[in-house]
Each structure stands twice: as structure tokens, then as C-alpha cells.
Amino acid sequence: MRHSESRGRRTIRWRHWNRSLHRDVGYFVLGLTVIYAVSGVAVNHTRDWNPNYRFFRQVETFAPIVPGDRAATVAAVVDALELPPPVDAFRHRPDQVTLFYEGWSVEADLSAGRAVIERPRRRPVLYAFNRLHLNRDRGLWTWVADLYALLLLFMPLSGLFILRGKNGFAGRGKWLVSLGIVLPLGYWLLR
């Protein structure tokens, strides 16, 4: 009788610690989970949009220009579009020139009399989220990301032992866990 009581106390103590850790780790990983989840959705759809930058592109037209030498061509485009003097310029073809400015550029097609002024801007918040999620900086963040991965692994494992009865792992839990394993496995086998 005494032996069984002691085992019961140990089980209760173990479950108590598991629940407390599950709760506190959950609080701790909330911020990181928001970053990784939001960025995860964002970078999943890179075919449809650029998750890091927005490109402000403004189309301007001008009377076609007969290409001359590099300096004359650049001067003619600058004059036609009423632009400030560029930092530098490059010609891809005699009639196609790119003007470079601080943080923006102009692509001009002299024959078509068409120019695109491009200004890239980082998406606020999302740029930082993606950079952290994809571990662009390496170094210290690699350790943070590894720690987060371990804590994320701990969360569902500890969650298995919080409830008992029909809502615990032995009840509906085992079916939902199985579903979560069958989903990726089935996709992998059937893809």
C-alpha cells in the first residue's frame, strides 16, 4: 500500500513538472514561432511574390533617341527624363542603357523611347522575419535556431503526457498523432 502511494506521488510529480515545463516553454517559443510561421508561409510562395522586397516601378516615355557614344547617350537620356546626373551608367546594347543612382536605377530603351525607374524597398518586418528564418546571418543565430528547434520538438512530446483519459494520448490523441504522421508519409510515398 505504501509502495503504491509513493509511486503514485512520483507520477503526479513527474506530470506536474512536465505540465509546468510545457507551459513555460510554450510561452518562451511564442515569439519565435510567430516569426518562423509567418516567414514560412511567406517564403513558401516565392513563385508568386517577392517576400523580401517591393519594387516600385514607374514607366516614363520620351522621344526615341539615336544612340551615340556612351557619354552622349547617357546625357541624352538624363536630359530627356529630366534626371539628376547618375553615379554611373552601363550600356547593354547601343540603344539600351542603365543609369545607377543611390538606391534606385533607370533602364532606358532609346529606340522604343521607354524607361523604367525602379526603386526597391524592403518589406518592413517581413524582411527581418525571413532573414532570421532562413538564418542569413549564421553565427549566433544558428545556436538560437537550433535551441528553438529542440524546444519545438519538446512541445508536442511533452503535450502527449498532459492529459489522461479520453482526451489524452491513449484516447483521441493516438489517432491525431497517427494522422500527423500519415499525412507527410502518404504525401512522400504518393508524390
Binding site: 538606391g103 524592403r122 518592413p124 518586418v125 524582411y127 527581418a128 522575419f129 532573414r131 532570421l132 542569413r136 546571418d137
Partner: peptide, 13 residues
């Protein structure tokens, strides 16, 4: 923090 976040880890061009 969200408002200043673009500066986090940003390259300084």
C-alpha cells in the same frame, strides 16, 4: 520592435 525591425541585421548599403 516591429517598427524598427527593418534595421535588424540589415546590410548598411
Amino acid at each position: 520592435l516591429c517598427v524598427v525591425s527593418p534595421a535588424f541585421g540589415a546590410d548598411t548599403p
